[in-house]
């Protein structure tokens, strides 16, 4: 118990003094997860809107697949990306395995279904309201997608934050494809696993506090955005 409370005070001093190792790890985490979420949004939002808008054979399957993939176990995503990027894999030539880029790819795989499935839901709700007006104006599908994505912007921002939460808190996939290499691919979650098993509790705790704060801030932001949007757009 004494050791634990001692670990906590050391952890706090690491945070307050902005310990270099800790800061590097936090920055790499943010960099990887932000990039992953942005890439996933670029593909996921238009994809979600397109699935909401088009009626095609097998659409039900696509919707179910997207919803199911929201719960994709991170280690499975990690395994798939590992197989793709490993030397013998189809994308082995790119030499991406055990680099931050590999971690970005793994997180995109994890986050993309969340962004696509949730944005499909939001856009579909909006479309039900807008459809007659859209047809009346004679809008093209492309224009409809633009309009719907913009009008769902507050809902989509919340979706984006949910995706970022998932990306930054995930450990299995980045561990497998990143390799947790010191100073290269070590992010908050993988460091916590490693440092805890090594008995280096202060660093693990310090990172845990940062991670927890991050998740709290994300959720507070999502809540505030929702409230503000409700008041502003009715």
């Amino acid at each position: 118990m004494a050791a634990d409370s001692n670990a906590l005070s050391v952890a706090l001093s690491l945070l307050i003094n902005l310990d270099a190792a800790l800061v590097d790890i936090v920055l790499l985490s943010l960099q990887v997860s932000l990039l992953a979420v942005c890439l996933a949004a670029l593909i996921g939002f238009p994809l979600g809107a397109a699935v909401a808008l088009w009626r095609f054979p097998g659409r039900g399957l696509v919707v179910v697949a997207l919803n199911a993939l929201m719960g994709l176990p991170p280690v499975v995503a990690g395994l798939v990306v590992y197989l793709l990027l490993s030397r013998a894999g189809p994308l082995g030539e790119w030499g991406l395995l055990f680099t931050p880029n590999a971690m970005v790819i793994a997180q995109v795989v994890l986050v993309l279904p969340i962004l696509a499935a949730l944005s499909r839901q939001k856009v579909e709700e909006l479309l039900a309201e807008y459809q007659e007006q859209f047809v009346s104006l004679g809008m093209s599908r492309l224009r409809m997608i633009q309009t719907l994505l913009w009008d769902a912007r507050f809902a989509l921002l919340t979706v984006l934050l949910a995706g970022f939460g998932r990306a930054s808190a995930e450990v299995g996939a980045v561990m497998m494809v990143g390799g947790n290499i010191d100073g290269v691919t070590r992010v908050m979650t993988t460091s916590i696993v490693l440092e805890t098993s090594k008995g280096n509790l202060p660093l693990a705790l310090g990172l845990g506090i940062v991670l927890l704060t991050l998740v709290l801030v994300i959720n507070a932001a999502a809540y505030l955005v929702g409230e503000w949007a409700r008041r502003r757009t009715g």
Binding site: Y130, Q133, D151
Partner: peptide, 26 residues
């Protein structure tokens, strides 16, 4: 042609942005 509905369908934007959107579509 154009149509005005019983329940007006308004985009989640300012009044003027609703008109500018229609003009852009047009």
């Amino acid at each position: 042609q154009a149509m005005v509905f019983q329940q007006p369908v308004m985009l989640r934007r300012s009044a003027i942005a609703n008109l500018i959107h229609a003009l852009a579509v047009n």
